[in-house]
Design a binder for these strands. Structure first.
Lengths: 144, 144
DNA sequence: GCTTGTTAGTTACAAAAGCAACAAATACCG
DNA sequence: CGGTATTTGTTGCTTTTGTAACTAACAAGC
């Protein structure tokens, strides 16, 4: 492999991916941070509970691919904000079911809509074909 | 906007982007970390110096879109590993030119090749059209 | 040439993430 | 049963990042 031919850092997919990911996250991150004082993991946990209903922390770890310590801390933070409540499972007392409170539901509804229009606006620059292929490629790379 | 219709977290582009970025970075990160004890910013600085020749820290900040404190620390770390050397500019003594040492060059050559084949392998799953569109979309989102 | 402003880079402190050890409950297996 | 292994979740400690203040050098205008 020759070094003399053209190969820019931007040709290196992981680099470009990170750049795009950072750029796209930043704007939305500012919203939930300023409005509700949430961190990224907190937003992800909130999204899962809001979109898919009550579930255990472990399920969120698996689905969102977040480490259990991050989820544990995010849950504690969301609980402190009274956005969610825990309920210990009687059958298996290691587990606890997490569910959004009314306040948490309201926050989710707000951010969910914001996220959708944010996403729509971002994708508006591309053709349907481009969107489809972008999603296909990203899913494959992410392994989901 | 209805919540009842289908909208998965994976339909939210920033989320999918982050997932793909993390996944794709992780494997390569392990390589330069295990082999040379480098962090991501260090690898980026090394790449810039190896690929584009000696330059100042500020130039790397601008090109790689990394904050100056991160670059500052990465440069210090690379200097400690004797991968690069600094040379103060006589004309403007605030600035210093960074250049790779012989050892740094060797490390770059190794990682550069590894990166290229890593990338090629990753892109092998896609058709040329898909690759082109993926890159087009990512560049646009990243604003580069 | 003196004040004011700007630029390059470092350092100190605070926030967040990663990692490993831990406790508690349960499952498995002789 | 009784001991070992596994699962769920938390906590403590270390590493890394982010933010803001700082130093040093230069530039520009008066």
């Amino acid at each position: 492999m020759q070094h003399s031919d053209e190969y820019d850092l931007r040709d290196f997919t992981p680099y470009l991916l990170n750049l795009a990911a950072e750029t796209s996250s930043l704007a939305f991150q500012k919203i939930y941070r300023a409005k509700y004082g949430m961190l990224r993991t907190e937003w992800r946990v909130l999204f899962h509970l809001g979109r898919y209903g009550p579930m255990r922390a472990k399920t969120i770890c698996d689905r969102a691919r977040v480490h259990k310590t991050k989820v544990s801390r995010a849950v504690a933070a969301l609980e402190a904000k009274r956005f969610l409540a825990r309920q210990q499972d009687d059958e298996d007392r290691r587990q606890e079911t997490l569910r959004l409170t009314k306040r948490g539901d309201a926050v989710f509804a707000d951010l969910y809509d914001t996220a959708r229009s944010f996403d729509a606006q971002m994708m508006a620059e591309f053709t349907p074909d481009e969107r489809r292929i972008l999603r296909h490629c990203l899913s494959k790379i992410a392994g989901v």
